[in-house]
Amino acid sequence: MSAVLRTAGLSKRWGAFYANRDVSVAFEQGARHALIGPNGAGKTTFIDLLTGTVAPSAGRVYLDGDDITTLAPHRRVKRGIARTFQASTLFPSLTVLESVMLAVCEREGRGGAGWRALASETAASSEALAILDALHLGAESDSTTRTLAYGKQRLLEIALALATRPRMLLLDEPAAGIPAKESVEVLGAIARLPREVTVVFIEHDMDLVFRFAERITVLVAGSVLAEGAPDEIAADPRVREVYLGEIPQGEAPLA
């Protein structure tokens, strides 16, 4: 088992407050790895540290064994780390298709091309349409992003991340705001991604977590409380204490 991405003693401190404290986690190749924990446990900060959006106060981040702690966010994307954001951060005035095409163009190194119209990038547009279709967004491709329903905006977040062809996909509450039936579909589509793609997701819905995660890390107050297979986590008395019995008893992972 080899870790694609791992952290060593990662900490983020704002003044006296530790959002993350001494977090060492390894994500194995092809994992479907959930990050759970109560609100304010530092899950999003941890993703921000992994993607370079926020600089750590201490500790290191390794991708394929290389130290990427100080690598700029867009360079990490080039190395295969993609993410979604908890609150939708999209391009309100661009169309759905344009947005995904931009991500494809950046991946292909054509994002700085300044003379031919984006519309004439036919390879990028067919690829973008294929991604949108896979997420049932095909019918919305010509809609302006700001007119999309919230649930569809969440899907567009995922489409943008997929368009970078990540090896490491970090999803910050991908199913939040999506109707329950669709959220199963969305996470199902993500879980079915080829095993070359390692998936890490933050999720509050424990049904979804235990349905799709094969490994779970529990963060509490910025530190790792427990890590293990879903049944180990479900049986862990410390985790049960934090969650006050929220975790379904004896449920086996399905995936």
Binding site: T53, L90, L102, E106, R107, G111, G114, A117, L160, A163
Partner: peptide
Amino acid sequence: RIVSSPFGRSLVGIRESSTRMAAIGAPVER
């Protein structure tokens, strides 16, 4: 021509969300 190119559209993207532009791999400052 330039504003309808990938470069020109990426400028609009940066204006609307530079965090997201960086998250799809764009060198925002450049």
